[in-house]
């Protein structure tokens, strides 16, 4: 297990907490690991520009092999306190990464919940520093993008300037100039 001081829970900014796992790659599995990562990168949701990862509560995810492929970092930002979701990880998301975790020490298909917990806790390290450039959960950000797209569409309408004169639309007019 990781030392109590550096482990659990992640640093939280607003609704979101950082979550980083540091693994040891099984000896000789470096190339296979890279192959699994390339396959993940080709999967729907992970292709550059897809923006629809299967797990709806993470902002982004990265897998970073380092130290000559002897180590692997998995780093993400999670909406909510991730430790409350430990059992849920075991049930669903961890399975998505099965072909990657095959190549790290301590992952034997995670036969039991205790094995999953031990696996995660032994790899988790809490950040020494963590900051975010925007607030909001993934769901709120997605909603905000949808709303902004709709707003831009309104602004493209030749009638928009007149329509936005209504007092109820004042906050929108205030952000319409650029």
């Amino acid at each position: 297990m990781g030392s109590e001081a550096s482990s659990r829970p992640g640093v939280r900014v607003g609704s979101t907490s950082e979550f980083s796992l540091f693994f040891h790659v099984k000896p000789g599995h470096g190339e296979a690991l890279h192959q699994a990562l390339r396959e993940l990168q080709d999967a729907p949701g992970y292709r550059p520009g897809d923006y629809e990862m299967p797990i709806a509560s993470i902002h982004e995810a990265r897998f970073v092999p380092f130290d000559d492929d002897t180590r692997l970092l998995f780093a993400t930002s999670f909406d909510g306190p991730w430790d409350a979701y430990m059992e849920d990880f075991a049930a669903k998301p961890l399975k998505l990464f099965d072909s990657i975790f095959q190549h790290v020490v301590g992952y034997e298909g995670l036969p039991s919940l205790q094995a999953v917990k031990d696996f995660i806790l032994s790899a988790q390290q809490t950040a020494g520093g963590y900051a975010r450039n925007y607030g909001g959960t993934v769901k709120e950000i997605r909603k905000a993008i949808t709303v902004n797209d709709a707003f831009q569409e309104v602004l493209d309408d030749p009638e928009a300037a007149d329509a936005l004169q209504h007092p109820a639309l004042r906050p929108l007019l205030d952000v319409a100039a650029d």
Binding site: S15, S57, G80, G136, V138
Partner: peptide, 21 residues
């Protein structure tokens, strides 16, 4: 923990899970 406390803290007392913190 994962039944009573989870429901109370994550689902009833918070709104992160529905995108409404």
């Amino acid at each position: 923990k994962r039944q009573f406390e989870f429901v109370k803290t994550q689902w009833l007392n918070d709104g992160i899970f529905i995108g409404a913190p």
